[in-house]
Amino acid sequence: MSPPYLPSSRPQEDGPDAATRARMEFSNEMLFDRPKAEAFYGSPPERAGRYYDDDRGLVVRSDIDGNPFHQDLIQFDPDAFAFTGSGTPRPLPLVGHHYQTVESGDWLHFCLRLGGRGVESISNYADIDQPSRSCIVTRYPGGARIERISSPVDGWRTACLWLRPAAVLRFLETTMSRVPEHLSLLVDPGHIDTPRHFSLPLDRRMVLAVDQVLDCPFTGGTRRAFVRSRYLEILALIYQAAVEMPGESVGVSLTRHTTEAITRAAALVAARLDRMGSLDEIAREVGISRTRLTHGFRALMGTSVEAYWRQCRMNYARDRLCEDKVAIGELAQQLGYAELASFSRAFTRTFGLSPMQMRTLR
């Protein structure tokens, strides 16, 4: 497998045991065994009591060749785990490229990527693209085998919440009868034969909650309570956003060909910041119909093609304002705006700050 947006998706490993390490599989439970966690992350977890009172919570920190890495792992209950991390996968071959076999029974994976790209290849299912700034919800049947790859060059920030269906109901303090029918895949206690997934726009409140976990100053039980509260907030935000989604966008199964075409379409749109082009043009370029493009794009990316393009433009503008000294008027022209005022309104509507305020803030 070689995802088109990851030109060198497989990490380059050194040493005689590289092949063995690349084939090592992990489970959620395994990561709370200190020796196994050290083998997976390449660094030992911080000593007991430093962050959490017991080994149901671990923190791993490392700095390899100037590449800092931070992972916060916590088990809330036997059917509820959360992993929050930031860093660069390049020096950590198992983090950047690994395999996982889902334990018996169905699991739900709520994956937030604040930065960095990735892909999941699931046995007997289409690849699931995980672009930067995305929220992907996947239900795996027990026994599903996953190959997971992160871009070896991107710095990333991620948050992963793993829940059994019963835990979803418990965390949301609701019952099956109150869950909309189109979200039954989140709570159905039965078993599915094929993975199902859907995407949502990444809410700024989700981003803030993840950042608060990574920056949490507390220790012991206070830390556990704080991290749990942030993940309860994340789950509530995801659930409410999914409730408001069109039912046909949730749990859609896409063929590998359609998934790859939509991934290419997203890359095309993100590269054309001054002019998106028509939907017919994009559909022809990636080799699918306009209808399949629009429906599949919303199912996979959680938003329309047009909204994705607008968000890419604004994200580009924000990054340039924060990193470069480019003139705001020049930036507006690069993005295809004929008038600076139109660009300023669009930017303020997206981020709640004007371009000048964003530059001053950073």
Rank of each mutant, 00 (worst) to 15 (best):
L273E: 11
L214I: 01
V187M: 05
A265G: 06
T294H: 10
E248G: 05
P246M: 11
G251Q: 01
T258L: 12
I238T: 07
H191V: 07
F198E: 05
P189T: 06
E244M: 07
H197T: 13
I282C: 09
M206A: 11
G251N: 12
A266V: 10
R228H: 12
I282A: 08
A209H: 07
S289E: 04
L235V: 10
L202D: 02
S253F: 15
D188N: 05
E233L: 02
M245V: 01
F198D: 04
G190D: 03
F297G: 11
R205D: 14
R272P: 14
E248D: 12
A261F: 07
L273R: 09
R230M: 00
L202E: 04
S253G: 13
A270G: 04
A266E: 04
I262R: 03
H257T: 13
L279Y: 13
V252Q: 07
T291A: 14
H191W: 06
F226R: 07
T294W: 03
L200N: 00
L235E: 13
C216P: 02
R264A: 09
M206G: 09
L214H: 05
A209P: 00
T294Y: 07
I192V: 06
C216D: 14
A299L: 09
L200S: 02
G287N: 04
R228A: 15
L293V: 02
D274M: 07
G296L: 03
G247E: 13
I288S: 13
E244V: 12
V187K: 01
D193N: 09
